[in-house]
């Protein structure tokens, strides 16, 4: 069976996962990324997901997925239990993003974090010119319904990683899935970071 191609932001995350790694995907949704990693990179994957319907779908794909909340449940995992811990498009929905980040680099030898960049020019335009909270492709839900509560820009994330003393191994800004070389904090809709303790 040929794996279904990944969403561009997930493809960028997947590219950073080494072959055969032990992977924990936090907020794994219906397990699309984990299934892809298993089928094409031979990873041994585990997932955490809040939504029971998504958990059921992921288990149906043969994945080991636990219903749980990254804000509270990561403490249950031993140190360095995984080669890679993934938090894709979820950090902004955490109550305590910094605490979650600290858990990621504790549980995993490395952590891959992707998030919508609140510094993207469309977001800036929406606020500065339109005077309204942005509704864009990477932020599709209006402010009162979105689960996202802690937005940050690529520069903000960079600063937090520095303050926490984390090593940024790799960083990428994506615009519609393509890597942005110039002014990522302005031109990228998504930030992807590979971090280490």
């Amino acid at each position: 069976m040929t794996p279904v191609p990944l969403r561009p932001d997930l493809a960028a995350v997947a590219a950073a996962v080494p072959e055969g790694a032990r992977v924990l995907d936090i907020g794994c949704g219906n397990g699309q990324l984990l299934a892809w990693l298993r089928d094409t990179k031979g990873v041994e994957g585990r997932g955490i997901e809040l939504d029971p319907g998504d958990v059921a779908a992921a288990v149906g794909r043969g994945l080991a997925v636990v219903q749980g909340d990254a804000d509270t449940d990561l403490a249950d995992y031993p140190d360095a239990a995984f080669d890679v811990v993934i938090l894709s498009n979820t950090l902004q929905a955490m109550h305590r993003p910094a605490a979650v980040l600290a858990e990621l680099v504790r549980i995993g030898r490395s952590a891959i974090v992707s998030f919508p960049n609140f510094g993207h020019w469309r977001v800036r335009m929406s606020l500065s010119v339109g005077g309204r909270m942005p509704v864009t492709r990477s932020l599709p839900v209006s402010w009162h319904e979105t689960p996202n509560i802690h937005f940050c820009t690529i520069a903000d994330f960079e600063a937090l990683a520095r303050d926490m003393g984390l090593t940024v191994e790799r960083r990428a800004g994506l615009a519609s899935g393509r890597q942005v070389a110039l002014w990522p904090n302005l031109l990228a809709d998504t930030g992807v970071f590979v971090l280490r303790r």
Binding site: R46, V55, A64, Q67
Partner: peptide, 8 residues
């Protein structure tokens, strides 16, 4: 390897 779900 463990999966878990709490159903309503």
């Amino acid at each position: 390897p463990v999966s878990f779900v709490e159903l309503e």
